[in-house]
Nucleic acid binder design. Structure first.
Lengths: 250, 250
DNA sequence: CAAATCAGCTTGTATATACAATTGACTGTG
DNA sequence: CACAGTCAATTGTATATACAAGCTGATTTG
């Protein structure tokens, strides 16, 4: 069965990025500590210097590292973080961390909108809406259960898609560019069905993120995203929030 | 020292970036319009493809351009959105909702910093730090368990306060104005002690929010905030920010 | 001793090349 | 006409190489 799809293979430079991030997040490499040079990384990972350089370069652009010509590369101070949690889509988040994202479509159908769904979507109660369920994996481990209700008036072709090829978020962004989104986060206990899909024990604590998205035509979709508490933290990583930074010369 | 002409001092890839930005800002290249391919730019500027690529690549990372493999490079829409969750302190949040906030001090002492706490606070392992535990209520119902570790070097009088009168957050804001904060959110199961304090059944799903706060003197405190899943949702708040102007250096 | 120089490391810029992956258009076949 | 296959263009990944430029520490020189 070919239900599974890999939206991206893990590139060499991504592996090196992930390795560097791991060392930093584990505390093995402290702030201001010098990290291996491009040549050392290249030798260690059996890649060319240019490939190692790319990994280091991209992390530098994200303010994770600081480089000085002639001196070396150092772990950046983490101070420039905001008190805002950035909610990104799961595929980008996984890829940004240098891991492999894949997803499995579990269901895709038209259902009658029960009142809470109808209210969230702004449609008539018991009118038909699209309903999809996907499981997202990081390195083949389930990390998010995505249940989504979609307004058929705004994305009428949603039902004809194959979400093994493209994520619902990606598809919806394409057909109805987002103008607004609202989130809420809470802790819940997984039920039997959810535990099965996420491959965790029953009644484990999970993060539940509810998201409503708008385009200029109205509410596009209402999604319930469930993450196993043991495998996911929201905002535990650097929120590089392209701020206009003052650069100081030391 | 050999003199160099100013023209040679400007990097080639920078010249190409400037050229592309000029075309976009002058309106010559409209939004969504296809721009010359890497090979065309390389030929036009008499550089290698990799150099032209670098210019286009950097602008893509700044959301000025959008690239699609096999298709080409296009001028991006000037608006990008990201949704951010705002984390507020519990007392303000409860008051903002028009409810009554109260808190109970459970513990306040000096302890030796075990390694994870020491790392979070940026102090020596097993050096003394302040430790407080409070329960916050909304309309007399427990809604947050606050466990906090405080850097004594920055708030030496923390240990002498009575946190039935003032919240730790309020006190710390007063003595060491916060400059930065970092959060992570996850789902956990409450243990016996936590369940008792929050007056909930054991092993209920809870939101755990970890917060590190900085002042300009360093890490002020590290807090673990636990909310019963049944009583609290982290509020969704949306922010749009238009892309900032890209300034070229050099 | 103090200053200048040099050697050796680092990152920065640039080139040339190869092949993979994706898209869209073209083309031949039934 | 419909469809499948092919092909060209384009971006994506990766390598190998060369030299420039900046920093540090050791060496040489005045």
């Amino acid at each position: 069965m070919q239900e599974k799809s890999q939206h991206a293979a893990v590139k060499k430079f991504s592996q090196i990025k992930a390795h560097i991030l791991d060392r930093i997040e584990s505390g093995e490499w402290d702030v201001n500590q010098k990290i291996p040079s491009e040549n050392e990384l290249a030798a260690q990972f059996q890649v060319s210097r240019m490939t190692a350089r790319r990994a280091v370069q991209e992390l530098t652009e994200q303010d994770v590292l600081i480089r000085t010509q002639g001196l070396g590369t150092f772990v950046a101070d983490t101070k420039t973080q905001s008190s805002l949690l950035e909610i990104k889509n799961i595929a980008d988040e996984i890829n940004d961390r240098g891991h492999m994202h894949s997803s499995t479509q579990v269901a895709l159908s038209t259902i009658d909108a029960i009142p809470p769904v109808a209210i969230a979507l702004g449609v008539e109660e018991y009118s038909p809406v699209f309903h999809s369920i996907l499981i997202h994996h990081q390195n083949n481990v389930p990390i998010q259960l995505e249940e989504r209700f979609v307004n058929p008036g705004i994305a009428p072709q949603y039902i004809d898609q194959d979400f093994n090829d493209i994520t619902p978020h990606e598809y919806l962004s394409r057909v109805a560019p987002l103008t607004e989104a609202k989130h809420s986060v809470e802790a819940i206990q997984s039920n039997k069905q959810q535990s099965d899909w996420l491959n965790i024990d029953m009644k484990q604590p999970c993060l539940q993120l509810l998201r409503r998205t708008w385009s200029n035509q109205g509410v596009v979709s209402f999604a319930r995203l469930i993450y196993p508490g043991s495998r996911y933290k929201l905002g535990g990583h650097l929120t590089f929030h392209t701020s206009q930074k003052i650069k100081m010369k030391g």
